[in-house]
Structure formats: C-alpha cells, structure tokens
C-alpha cells in the first residue's frame, strides 16, 4: 500500500472515531428526552430518590452557597470601591455589586459549587453502579436506566438551583454592603436605598433563568460521563473528573451566550 493510501485510511478512521464521539452525547440526550414523558405517569418520579437529591443539591448545599456568595460579594465590593473612590463615586459600589451578583456571580457561584458537589457525585455514583453491574441489572429487569437514574437528579437540580441562586444573590448583596458600610463608610440606609433603586425583578429573573440552564448542563454532564465510565475504579475517577471539567466548560460557554443574548434585549 502506498503511503498516501495509509494516510487516507488513518484520516478516515480518525473522522469515524470523532463522529462516534459526537453520536454518544446525542444518544444520551435522546434517551433523556424519551424518558421525560414518564414523569407524568403514575409512579413516574421516584420520590425517595428525588428527596435524597433535593437534599444533596439543595438544603445541604445552602451553607456553602451562602458563605461563598457572601465572600464573593465582599470581594466585588472591595474591587469596585478601590476604583470608584478615585472618582468619588463610592455609592456606585452598590450598583456594581448588585448587578454583577444578580446577573453573573450568583448563578455562576451556585453552578460551580453544585458542579463540585452534585455533578461529580452523579458521575461517580453512576460509574460505581456500572462497576457493580447495577446498570446491567436494571436493564435486564426491563427498566430503562436513563429514566430511572437521571430523572430524579434532573428534577431535583432544576428545583434546587434557582432557589439556591436567590439565596446566593441575597448573600452576595449583603457581602458587598458589609464592605460598603464598614470600609467605605457609606451609610447603611444610603447603600440600601441605592441597591433597591437600581435593581429590579427582571434582572434577578434573568439570573435565575441562567441558573436553570446551568442546572441542566451540570446534571446532564454528570450523568453522561457516569454512564460512559469504564468498569473499573480508575474509570470512575476519570468520569468524575471529565464531568466536572465538562460542566464548568459548558456552564461558562452558556453564561457567555446568555450574557450576549441578554445584552441584545437591553439587560
């Protein structure tokens, strides 16, 4: 065989491999979509699992979300104040902190915390189930693993993340306020009324909408890589890593896209 032919064969194989890699996530998305209608059937959502994941993603994540958001708000407050004092415009710290927290850092911090807490847990859990042949056992019982295992996680995340984002938003604004009041000597009442004046419900809602999109991405990435895990301990570790890297990547891509989209509609 000529060198050129060998080269072409290699190119062809690479292309086919790449195509395979694209097909897998699509297949997974298709399976999830196909399972969605079962949510509305009797016994459709496994309440017990749903409650477990709601606690894992929701209430148990609340303390860390509050702490991280508070710190983030404080950090934003300091950075904003350092620049704004140059113009004697300290009071605008309230604007900067308020808008960045509601539109960006609230949803983003919650997404990053839940990627670490939930996304990686989903991947490791499904990977371990694969090692233990639990997924095969589900299949041979005639139960669709995707519907059975993904839906409780998905619904729990869809509910938990927007609520956490609201808490994160409030904590972030208080973080900025704490800095404004204590370091910049802005009177509390002034900072507060400035915050209330500039922020509106729509801004907050758009941030919450982001968190809904992020919750989808984190759950799907976690579950997808969990199902892709090879049946060994290293495979489980790899799938958890891939899930975290992929979900942070997609969350930031989606954040960028949504931010651009929002700017078109004037927000």
């Amino acid at each position: 065989m000529k060198n050129s032919e060998i080269f072409l064969i290699r190119v062809r194989r690479r292309l086919l491999d790449a195509a395979d890699k694209c097909v897998l996530p699509l297949e997974f998305l298709g399976a999830v979509a196909a399972a969605l209608p079962s949510l509305f059937r009797k016994k459709g959502l496994r309440l017990r699992e749903f409650r477990y994941y709601l606690a894992l993603c929701g209430s148990k994540s609340l303390p860390i979300v509050l702490l991280i958001s508070l710190l983030m708000g404080g950090v934003l407050g300091i950075q904003a104040a350092l620049q704004l004092t140059k113009f004697g415009a300290e009071i605008f710290t309230a604007d900067l902190v308020g808008f960045s927290v509601l539109k960006e850092f609230g949803p983003l911090m919650v997404a990053i915390i839940l990627t670490g807490r939930a996304g990686s847990a989903f991947a490791a859990e499904l990977g371990t189930m694969k090692v233990n042949e639990e997924i095969s056992a589900l299949e041979t019982m005639g139960i669709r693993p995707v519907g059975y295992l993904v839906l409780p996680k998905l619904v729990a995340m869809l509910l938990a993340m927007p609520v956490l984002t609201v808490f994160g938003d409030v904590a972030g604004i208080f973080g900025g306020m704490a800095i404004g009041v204590s370091v910049l000597d802005i009177p509390f009442a002034a900072y507060w009324s400035r915050t209330i004046d500039v922020l509106d419900g729509i801004t907050m809602l758009l941030g919450i909408l982001k968190s809904v999109v992020f919750s989808l991405l984190i759950t799907l990435a976690g579950c997808f890589y969990g199902f892709q895990s090879t049946s060994d301990a290293q495979g489980v570790g790899r799938s958890a890593t891939q899930a975290v890297v992929a979900s942070i990547f997609w969350v930031i891509v989606a954040d960028a896209l949504l931010t651009v989209l929002y700017s078109f509609i004037g927000y």
Binding site: E49, Y52, T128, M129, N132, E133, E134, S136, A137
Partner: peptide
C-alpha cells in the same frame, strides 16, 4: 450477577 448487583441505596 457476580457481585449481586444490588442497588446500594
């Protein structure tokens, strides 16, 4: 299955 494949939860 070999290890029983029980659901851990």
């Amino acid at each position: 299955y070999q290890g029983g494949a029980l659901f851990g939860s």
